[in-house]
Amino acid sequence: MAAGGDHGSPDSYRSPLASRYASPEMCFVFSDRYKFRTWRQLWLWLAEAEQTLGLPITDEQIQEMKSNLENIDFKMAAEEEKRLRHDVMAHVHTFGHCCPKAAGIIHLGATSCYVGDNTDLIILRNALDLLLPKLARVISRLADFAKERASLPTLGFTHFQPAQLTTVGKRCCLWIQDLCMDLQNLKRVRDDLRFRGVKGTTGTQASFLQLFEGDDHKVEQLDKMVTEKAGFKRAFIITGQTYTRKVDIEVLSVLASLGASVHKICTDIRLLANLKEMEEPFEKQQIGSSAMPYKRNPMRSERCCSLARHLMTLVMDPLQTASVQWFERTLDDSANRRICLAEAFLTADTILNTLQNISEGLVVYPKVIERRIRQELPFMATENIIMAMVKAGGSRQDCHEKIRVLSQQAASVVKQEGGDNDLIERIQVDAYFSPIHSQLDHLLDPSSFTGRASQQVQRFLEEEVYPLLKPYESVMKVKAELCL
């Protein structure tokens, strides 16, 4: 049975990233139509530049190519590739079939990587351009969430054990800070992308030097003109047959890092959902379990974690691919890159769409948070109580021993009897502590235990987050809708 299948058929496997999760716009960027249309555009740009620099290419040939950029006979191309065992030459023939007058000058002087690699770089750039505003929107939604809850005390956790208090907004800023680093890295790697350009079979530009009869300047002009037509500021000066596969490492490393950030955020949300302090959106008709109707599973956060793990592992592909590119190139890269580049971007696209949807509907339960604080705060307040007693004339050592005994009794009630923490009640009825009984409410005010959390939130948002989001103001209103 021949390899390949009808990918629109229910009898043929289709990647869930495309069929179930990723956005239509990201799927289109990695589609065959987008790819092969870009090949034709690159052939047109090459012909236009070659004509401008004096090669015998007519206006009629150029116009014929322009008129057929979208006229792609995919069936013919597939048949040609089956016959020739070469995808680029299959599309040269297919393009030439609908451009008979231009057929002889299509791909003039070029090698397969002229269309293959340059198209990949265009796709990487455009895919990054799709991700950047999506990530900015996630940051914006979380920034709104953090600002609104900047002063809401909550129990902090280290080692997932109760620690000092923080605020809900401050905790959210930990998430935002990681995503801001990801946004900066995505922008950097996007701006650092260079075009492969017009380089020939081993990167020496020998074929173009021959076409222009040894004119170095025209060869350099050709490279520059096509690079500018493709919208790049610069091209690699040095290439082998391909652009260095280190570029793929750079791009997928940034995406993998984004995956790590999203995994951490969504894990926190899942843990908070278990504590009943916070939940992701839950639709009115949504079913959490087929057997347990009360369940409210954090399905979206779980999906993000599941896909983020996949995204983090994909960076190993370009690392290994770059390491086995012998001399000017081997074909070890080809099949692998067809999979890992598309999957990385479709996965990143999915987790950003999902995280935006989550961040637009996060639900906080202040009463649950308050109750958990009441359970733990008495123990945390013991040092403040000791200091207040010393100020009232008591002995630190005597007070410490009193607190120690009462704390152990209260802990026994919590752990052995399943009761509430009654340390404060014990202190309130103990005559030894009568000098500070009137101060206990103040000493137990949760806001006095959150330090500068709310001020940190305000400063972080104003100095770091809002300036970073400013270039994306025009796209901030787009909502994230999930079908599944």
Score class of each variant (00 low, 15 high):
E376G: 03
L346H: 13
E279A: 09
V478L: 15
S289E: 02
E462F: 12
E302K: 05
R149L: 09
H263K: 03
A2M: 15
R309E: 02
A453R: 04
V92F: 03
A49D: 01
E280W: 00
G156K: 00
T321W: 04
D268H: 09
I238M: 08
A291E: 03
A90P: 03
E228H: 11
L84Q: 15
K295T: 01
N71P: 12
S334C: 06
D59Q: 10
I106G: 01
C180R: 05
V226E: 02
W326S: 05
D191W: 09
W326K: 01
V368M: 03
L272N: 05
I269V: 12
E463C: 08
L135S: 10
L319M: 09
V115K: 01
V405R: 14
T382K: 03
F157K: 08
S407V: 02
I373H: 05
A411C: 14
E464N: 06
F449I: 03
I386L: 04
E417R: 11
G200H: 01
E401V: 05
T347Q: 08
L271N: 03
K264M: 04
V262G: 09
K233E: 10
T267F: 10
C99I: 10
D32A: 15
T201R: 00
E60M: 12
L155C: 03
V364K: 01
H400E: 02
L341R: 07
H86D: 02
I62N: 07
E464R: 05
A235L: 12
H159S: 03
C113D: 01
S140D: 11
D192G: 13
A49P: 00
M312I: 13
L174H: 12
D32I: 13
I105F: 11
A18G: 15
S412G: 12
M26E: 01
V92A: 14
D332S: 00
L271G: 06
E60T: 12
I122S: 03
I72N: 09
R20C: 00
V324H: 09
V315M: 14
Q221E: 13
I123E: 07
E328M: 01
A102K: 00
A136K: 10
E462L: 15
L152C: 11
F460V: 07
A335P: 08
L209C: 09
K229C: 07
T201K: 02
Q397N: 11
F28E: 08
F212A: 07
T201S: 05
F327C: 12
R190V: 11
Q439D: 15
S67Y: 13
L258G: 03
A49Q: 02
K229V: 05
L130D: 06
T94P: 01
V29N: 11
T52C: 14
S140I: 15
E277I: 03
N126L: 06
V405G: 14
L469V: 15
M225Y: 10
A260Q: 09
F232G: 03
Q164K: 00
M65D: 00
G116C: 13
D192H: 10
V405A: 15
C304H: 04
L341Y: 13
G394M: 07
K415A: 10
R85F: 09
E60K: 12
W39R: 00
T94W: 07
R338A: 02
A256Q: 04
N357E: 06
V364F: 05
A291D: 02
G54Q: 09
T119D: 05
Y466V: 13
L174G: 15
D11S: 08
G288P: 00
S334L: 04
L17D: 03
Q41K: 12
D192E: 12
E277M: 07
C98V: 12
F282N: 13
M181E: 09
I265G: 05
N185V: 06
F95Q: 06
G288Q: 02
A322H: 12
L55M: 14
Q285V: 15
G394S: 12
M89P: 00
Q177P: 02
T111P: 02
